[in-house]
Design a protein around this nucleic acid. Structure first.
Lengths: 347, 347
DNA sequence: TTTTAGCACTCAGGGAGTTAGAGTGCTAAA
DNA sequence: TTTAGCACTCTAACTCCCTGAGTGCTAAAA
């Protein structure tokens, strides 16, 4: 069942050619483009066998071959060699990400933009999964009577704010008091353990807050909602429109199917999460064509990897492109961006 | 030069039909679909004249007519009647925007999403132009030693935060002191008047800050940057992918041209601004086809209107769709959303 | 057993020719 | 000014045909 050496070379050559041209590869053009020591007839035999084994397919009888999902998979798993990024490219990425960003959201946005620029495909960056992180700060700032800005800071460096409405007559001091109490009570507590009850106990245990219970509860409820909201995954996606210039999406319906799905951030975030769990130990996760269980993304390939914050909490960055993508190049680009992210988020 | 009554009716009917079908309208099908008391030959004469005057054009000799940009313009300016939104639709929009959002960004995002959903086209919402607004609050929260979150609140209800890096050894108290001093000195000051110098004087006049000048200046510089950054326009755009299902964008290149331009937020924001100035007194601004000076957006029409915050500072919401859009419906939808925005932003 | 040359076969894509139909403009009569 | 009638135009769709790239198979060569 294992492919003999020449067949591997043939498969690899076909994938390379098809990636470059997006046209079915025939035995003659293979000979032309590569230095094979055998004749086209021999290649034809090999190609017929590769097709039998499921690595190649034919659009129609008298056309050349194109790689099947299985063919790409074999290519990715054992044939291609991931090479280092050229110094040139490394420098370019470094300069784009170089300016010091300190908030994670800003950094991820920049990473996503860079990745899209460099690969020419769709990039995405997902904020860290926060369930394992904990609350470090909670501040409530009175913007005007009746309006308070709740700022939530999490251990992963995530900062979220939410404007809430409270009764008009609460004073700056009362709010500050409550906010301090809650912060003292909750800081260091994992997000998953925070509930409306823990928020309430924190407030009531830590400070003599001289407010009627009903009123206090209202404020606490808003604080709780703000905390919970901070847990939402954010997805930054860039470069969608570039897909339209690829021949595989010259049919508008295909493009629309893709864009429809991509416009649902939640779907993507969920899928990335799922894939990350499946391939837990791998350096990067790759899904090809039909392997992708999202509607409209067969026809695409999906490469993601995981970055870490403070060596622990993890989010993902990745690239979505056509199946016919330059896998090894994209992988090295993603790797480079991830390394830079890791470095910047180490502290 | 003024069109006689029947010609107006003919033009209106042609626009209506073309909007509905996206196919050139011929004299016979006009008769079929509308109750004309004259024959198709008469309409043909009228249509020939309308063409002569520039209101209609022919894709080729033996096809029907389609409205030219001038034709649409006439239609929009004097032929169509903007009808009220159906109660049904009003209710729908109301319910989507109904939940209480207090931060302007959240509200605009929701407005944009609603508009895209309702119209089926591309919606956009631009944050208020802030030059005429003033600073109301500035808070600096120490997140961890060396890292401070600067929260800037503007009179228009805009809240922005920016994470900045400062020397490690500054204490929570020192930061609070500086932040209070700056806030006291600057609150109420128009954004346009704030400069690095005013920030510095504010800090030094208002409080005895016991810090070496160099250090203080570093912190002040960060505060200043955060304030200036709050001035950036944000653009929320929704529903791009829906354009792909329209026949006018079945050619991928057209779609790509459009998307390329739309992916530059700055271009759009700038153009909206320009248009708003041009049509200062109008309730809504309409640009049709070639009238739009953005690359890739000929072939589209662009409707925007202005919302106000506290009766003063103004941002824009709008819709981008094909020239062949249901103008009157879209206008009433935009109007409705604007009214709701105004209402919610009144305070 | 593997490779190769040779050959018949297949099929998509492009060009040429044809037709149908929707639309036009013009003319002359109402 | 409107209408009927008619000749004319042009696209879109269809068919037919041809070309060329590619295939698979067979039989000979290595």
């Amino acid at each position: 069942m294992g492919l003999d050496d020449r067949k591997k070379v043939v498969l690899q050559a076909i994938v390379d050619d098809y990636v470059a041209t997006c046209e079915p590869v025939g035995s003659k053009s293979l000979i032309d483009r590569h230095d094979f020591t055998v004749s086209s007839a021999t290649l034809r035999n090999d190609m017929a066998e590769l097709e039998q084994l499921g690595y190649l397919e034919k659009p129609h009888t008298s056309a050349g071959r194109i790689p099947s999902d299985k063919g790409y998979r074999e290519y990715v798993d054992s044939l291609m060699k991931v090479d280092h990024l050229s110094d040139e490219e490394g420098r370019e990425i470094r300069s784009k990400l170089g300016e010091s960003f300190d908030e994670i959201a800003t950094l991820l946005k920049a990473a996503s933009a860079t990745l899209a620029d460099q690969t020419g495909y769709i990039s995405l960056a997902v904020t860290p999964k926060l369930t394992s992180s904990y609350l470090t700060q909670l501040k409530m700032l009175m913007i005007e009577p009746g309006k308070v800005l709740v700022v939530v800071v999490l251990s992963a460096g995530v900062v979220k704010n939410r404007m809430v409405r409270i009764p008009d007559f609460l004073t700056q001091e009362q709010i500050a008091q409550i906010s301090n109490a809650v912060e003292q009570g909750l800081s260091g507590m994992p997000l998953s353990e925070i509930s409306l009850i823990t928020v309430a106990t924190a407030a009531k245990d830590n400070q003599k807050v001289e407010l009627p219970d009903a009123l206090l509860n209202q404020v606490l409820y808003e604080a709780y909602t703000a905390i919970k909201q901070a847990d939402n995954l954010d997805v930054y996606m860039e470069g969608k429109h570039r897909m339209l210039s690829l021949p595989e999406f010259s049919d508008t319906r295909r493009a629309q199917g893709l864009f429809d799905t991509l416009s649902h951030d939640g779907l993507i975030a969920g899928y990335v999460d799922e894939v990350t769990k499946e391939d837990e130990k791998k350096e990067y996760m790759i899904r090809i064509g039909q392997e992708i269980t999202l509607e409209g993304l067969d026809g695409c390939s999906f490469i993601t990897t995981t970055y870490t914050v403070g060596g622990k909490v993890a989010g993902n960055i990745g690239v979505i492109g056509p199946k016919r993508m330059e896998y090894s190049k994209v992988i090295s680009q993603i790797n480079f961006v991830r390394m830079m992210l890791d470095e910047k988020l180490k502290q």
